[in-house]
């Protein structure tokens, strides 16, 4: 197995084009597990840790955060908690402190696992994934269109993930993750919520309860239409419950070793109900 170590983004894309059999590796928290368990033997590893551009984040015109694919979770927590609270909450639940220092949002998107912790808040926030190739340059894909199947995404063989573009939060965000122990656990189900009071909209993201991470569009529209955006009166319990049921209905979970489909649906209803309650309370307090 070759170990390829570009030192610039330009070089990385060139190598990617030449070696479609190369597996990109950033923090290695997914890739190394696959290698150690002998589940994958790629022809080469394309190590992106020396590409400095990937380890930066900036604020674009319009207030979107351009988060380099190689920024580790620990920095998302430490540096972006105010701008991207949902993503930071999700980052806090990833693995152990050691894993959070290594693991990256770009890597999460590369693996495209239905259980990836970063995905639900990116969906809820309406993020875009910026991918690039040497031949065709850069394109931006809405994260809702990015996942194509279990551990599959829209990347072409010559493409790499450059960054993810996440709108700075305009309102409260929540992320909730159920696991069977209280730390260092892969989610049984996860839910992210973003309230966008500026445009009176709601964003959602569901994890571990369908072949891909997905939104709950019907629940979003329902809630956005029912919320009292103007007066911001207390949230009726029935509305929170009805929203939870719609989120659960949007899931397509399975039974597996981590949990049952029925429990996943049930837990999503509870998480969505609680998340909207907390987020609405935050919004009212902020007013």
């Amino acid at each position: 197995m070759d170990f390829l170590q570009p030192s610039s983004w330009h070089e990385a894309l060139a190598i990617r084009a030449e070696r479609p059999d190369a597996l990109p590796i950033a923090g290695g928290t997914d890739v190394m597990v696959e290698l150690n368990f002998d589940r994958r033997r790629p022809g080469a590893l394309l190590d992106l840790t020396r590409v400095g551009e990937l380890r930066e984040w900036s604020v674009e015109d319009g207030g979107r955060v351009r988060l380099g694919a190689g920024v580790p979770y620990a920095r998302v927590i430490g540096e972006l908690g105010d701008r991207l609270p949902g993503l930071a909450m999700a980052a806090r639940t990833v693995g152990s402190p050691q894993i959070r220092v290594r693991g990256t949002v770009g890597g999460n998107l590369g693996s495209a696992s239905p259980a990836g912790d970063a995905h639900p808040p990116l969906l809820a926030a309406g993020a875009e994934v910026e991918v690039a190739s040497a031949a065709r340059g850069t394109r931006r894909v809405p994260v809702a269109d990015y996942f194509t199947g279990v551990k599959r995404n829209v990347l072409e063989p010559d493409e790499l993930i450059a960054a993810v573009l996440v709108p700075t939060a305009a309102g409260p965000q929540q992320f909730c993750k159920v696991g069977t122990r209280n730390a260092m656990v892969i989610s049984v189900s996860a839910f992210a919520l973003a309230l966008h009071p500026d445009r009176q909209a709601v964003g959602t993201g569901i994890g571990s309860a369908a072949p891909t991470p997905r939104c709950a569009p019907e629940a979003e529209e329902f809630l956005a239409g029912e919320l009292d955006w103007a007066a911001r009166r207390p949230l009726p319990e029935g509305l929170a419950r009805a929203f939870g049921e719609r989120v659960a209905a949007a899931a397509a979970p399975i039974d597996d070793v981590r949990g049952t489909a029925a429990y996943r649906r049930h837990s999503l209803a509870v998480l969505a109900r609680r998340a909207v309650t907390w987020a609405w309370d935050d919004l009212r307090r902020a007013a």
């Binding site: 806090r92 639940t93 159920v178 696991g179 209280n182 509870v270």
Partner: peptide
């Protein structure tokens, strides 16, 4: 809390 930083409850339930 049960669920810890998974942020699944703030005391509810």
């Amino acid at each position: 809390l049960p669920g810890a930083v998974g942020n699944t409850t703030h005391g509810e339930g």
